[in-house]
Design a protein around this nucleic acid. Structure first.
Lengths: 343, 343
DNA sequence: GATGGACATGAGAGCGCTCTCACGAGCATT
DNA sequence: AATGCTCGTGAGAGCGCTCTCATGTCCATC
């Protein structure tokens, strides 16, 4: 079994190496009988082509990279990222690609990782998580001409291909939902203020308020960092402003906020309503189930992979962009169901 | 810049390709002057060897795989796994290895993934997450002779190299801590009953009880699945048994349990004490900070990579095992500090 | 029967490295 | 002076594939 090559398969099937290669790569122009005979040999021997040799000869590695720059520390505090990673893994499985993971803890890591990522013959393309200014890795990788898809709108997006959800609209939907239900003092808990996700969601929040003829009040905004703990802290700062509803920019921050409010005896949604973003599983498992803006996380991952494949096969120009839509999921944390019953 | 090869570097440095190769691979027998000259050219051109060609010629890919079989669904519900993944990524960065990630959602995925993992010339070795019976991937991969390290004691461990923490001892420590503090009715929330982690921790719990001359009562055990939601549910089943302390087999289940107990107005640790496992960041961010058994998660990942490298370089026989120690971290959820003050 | 095209297969030149071997220079040993 | 080292370098044979090109066969067409 050791060192079983194309040549060996060819010998067993009584054909030339080239023909076996054609069978493996599904190229036409192989007679049905021969194809069958070769496939039989491959089957019975369990032959697998050597990945390195194939890469070298075809100039394709059939592997893509997933790069998490140092700025994506929420990989560990927000379940969103593991889910996204899963979606990406699915996308790879579907397309017979392998996935290589690069995690950078700090700038030093990034410098160290960079040459490995950019090494020729290693990756066909990369997916880069993003959304903060000063993205060293995005800058370098896109300049190195390796096909790249940025996950999440990058800070400077000119010429870059990226995929994102429609955050502005999503936040409008969320805020509008609270406005429609009659809430008057709507506060918001954001993620890191310098991330594009947070900026876009804050913008949507403002837009919805304006559209309803309300004024935006900066004191109704508290900054978190997409962790549960930060939601827990942020809401403490917000409560003195007497909000009757809160737009939390992620489910996990909403969970943190709810934890604090319940600890001090506030009822949700009677005292304060709250809406989240993501629709991660925990949203459904709370004692007061969370109303939220569902992101198609798995589809997001799959689409990202497909976009990257497109760039690899058809060139990276012009830059392409995919914006996915979101969906309002009404549960119990905003009181919509009760109102409907009462009316 | 396109297609810049060893040969080109050699030409620029006025030496033969072989010499450049020697410089790159740090082999001795290169005169200092020549080495310097070559390094200069490499520096100024930014030359990076082609990964595929190197793999093909050297029969080493400098890449390892991290395999999460379908049984590891807690990748998404327990922050432990993202942290472990980070540790592994660090280990790889330290050793100039690349990491390839394989996530299987179900048996079908596993079948599909298997040939890609086992493909010759692709991976130097694999890390396989484990701990449940019927591990199709562990079975196949270890049989395929690719160097493998199982992460977490596998169900059938004969002949396999693995790394784990000392779960039995960890659970003894946790339970003993509660016993020492005078708690009488100590219950436990386990993970999935067929996982080795849970089995080992349950065994430690029993051992500690026995050592203290107490009887083990199966009704004081509730099964979870390492998710926050399962802790929340499990504690409901446990409360009718009137426990005064709980050993939760993971921090995140402890968090769930605490959430329920606080919702119904129980005080921690006055009414019920609770201890967790892992020491993930959230343990420190709770209103009642969680006493827990700290696992060296990052070191765990790094050690796993080092063990795998050992197997790759020095052969897989005999099987090697690494058992890491844990540490009791005393915070507020068991009342230890208060008692000390009162005395 | 001569011509041409479609299709199936074989031949063999790479892909860009590593690694063993050969070679020659320089030095110490007899 | 002959011999044997060590050491630095060049030569070139692979590693196991893919892919273009050449070749041969079969059949339709005039």
């Amino acid at each position: 079994m050791e060192k079983f090559t194309l040549e060996d398969v060819a010998k067993l099937a009584g054909v030339h190496r080239s023909t076996v290669s054609r069978v493996i790569n599904d190229s036409p122009n192989v007679s049905p009988q021969v194809r069958k005979r070769v496939q039989k040999v491959i089957q019975s021997t369990g032959y697998q082509p050597n990945a390195a040799a194939r890469s070298l000869a075809s100039q394709r590695s059939y592997m893509i990279g997933l790069v998490l720059p140092r700025s994506v520390s929420s990989f560990f505090t927000d379940p969103f990222f593991p889910h996204l990673t899963q979606g990406i893994a699915f996308g790879c499985n579907n397309n017979n690609l392998s996935l290589s993971l690069f995690l950078a803890g700090n700038r030093e890591d990034e410098e160290k990782i960079l040459p490995r990522i950019a090494r020729r013959g290693f990756l066909d393309g990369v997916l880069i998580q993003s959304g903060r200014p000063d993205e060293f890795l995005i800058d370098r990788l896109t300049k190195s001409n390796i096909p790249s898809v940025i996950i999440g709108r990058p800070f400077l997006s000119d010429g870059l291909s990226f995929i994102d959800i429609d955050n502005v609209n999503a936040a409008i939907k969320a805020t509008q939902h609270l406005i429609d239900l009659g809430y008057q003092r709507i506060a918001t808990i954001t993620g890191n203020h310098d991330s594009t996700v947070s900026m876009d969601r804050l913008e949507g929040y403002k837009k919805a308020l304006n559209a309803a003829g309300r004024e935006f009040n900066p004191e109704m905004v508290a900054e978190g960092d997409f962790s549960e703990a930060s939601g827990y802290q942020a809401v403490k700062l917000l409560l003195p402003m007497k909000p009757d509803a809160i737009v939390a920019q992620s489910d996990i921050m909403a969970v943190g906020a709810m934890r604090w409010m319940q600890e001090i005896g506030l009822s949700i949604p009677e005292d304060v309503a709250i809406i989240g973003f993501d629709d991660i599983p925990v949203a459904r498992q709370l004692n007061v189930q969370l109303t939220t803006i569902r992101q198609p996380i798995t589809r997001f991952g799959i689409k990202a992979v497909e976009l990257l494949i497109d760039l690899i096969e058809n060139g990276t120009k012009p830059a392409r962009r995919i914006i996915l839509d979101t969906e309002l999921v009404i549960r119990d944390s905003c009181g919509a169901k009760k109102i409907r019953v009462e009316v």
